[in-house]
Computed example of a mutant assay.
Amino acid sequence: MDGYPLLNLFWTMLEVFLFVLWFFLLFKVIGDIFRDHAMGGWGKAGWLVFVILLPYLGVLVYLIARGSSMGERDREQARKSEAAFRAYVQEAAGQQPTDGQQPTQADELAKLARLRSDGTLTEDEFQQAKAKLLA
């Protein structure tokens, strides 16, 4: 370690961290350019050329000009992903989506009736489940 002082090690670590952070930001901006449905093809091409040819200035200008709408698109994408996940879980569990609410007693009775009509439950099993639900 005689030829490489501790301060230089910290400086190198900082440079590597900033380099990784820069690439993360660059890919985030490029992803946002393609994700924006309100922007036309020529607008996307223009921003992409600007970001690729002058990366530091292009990313900085993009964040200043479109940073707030970038956050809105991130939130909208998160809401869509959450809704799709909830719908998948409800479908896998065999429930109908109820907008995040607990199924009501009427929903459970309708589900039991559907299972009885499908032949999954016998009449006796249906009556037992119905009595248990109404108790």
Score class of each variant (00 low, 15 high):
F34Q: 12
S117R: 12
A93H: 03
E108M: 14
A106K: 08
L112G: 07
S117E: 15
Y88Q: 14
L48G: 09
P55D: 07
L121I: 05
E91K: 14
V51K: 01
Q96L: 14
P103L: 04
L121A: 10
F85S: 13
Q128A: 15
K132S: 09
K132R: 10
E91W: 05
S81M: 11
Y4R: 14
L21Q: 10
Q128W: 02
I52H: 03
R73S: 01
F24C: 08
E76G: 00
L63W: 00
G58D: 04
F24N: 07
L112K: 08
L115M: 15
Q90N: 15
V20F: 13
W47G: 05
D107Y: 01
W47S: 05
S68F: 07
G67E: 06
Y4F: 15
A84K: 11
Q102I: 09
F85W: 12
E82H: 08
R66K: 14
M1W: 03
A113C: 01
A93R: 12
A84W: 01
H37K: 14
T98M: 13
I30W: 05
A83M: 13
G71K: 13
A106I: 04
G31K: 04
N8V: 08
F34E: 13
P55H: 07
N8S: 11
S117T: 07
S81I: 07
E125S: 10
L57Y: 05
L7K: 10
V49G: 06
E15N: 11
L25Y: 05
K44L: 04
P97G: 07
G41F: 06
V51T: 00
Y62M: 03
K80D: 11
A93G: 06
D2K: 13
V16N: 06
Y62E: 04
V59E: 03
L7G: 13
G41M: 09
S69E: 15
G40E: 07
Q128G: 00
A135V: 01
G71T: 02
V51M: 01
G94T: 05
K130H: 09
P55A: 10
P103K: 08
L7T: 09
L63Y: 04
G67Q: 06
G31R: 10
A38H: 09
D118A: 14
Q95V: 09
A113F: 03
L54H: 02
N8I: 04
V20C: 11
M13P: 00
G71H: 10
A93C: 06
P55W: 02
V16F: 10
I64Q: 00
G43Y: 05
F85G: 00
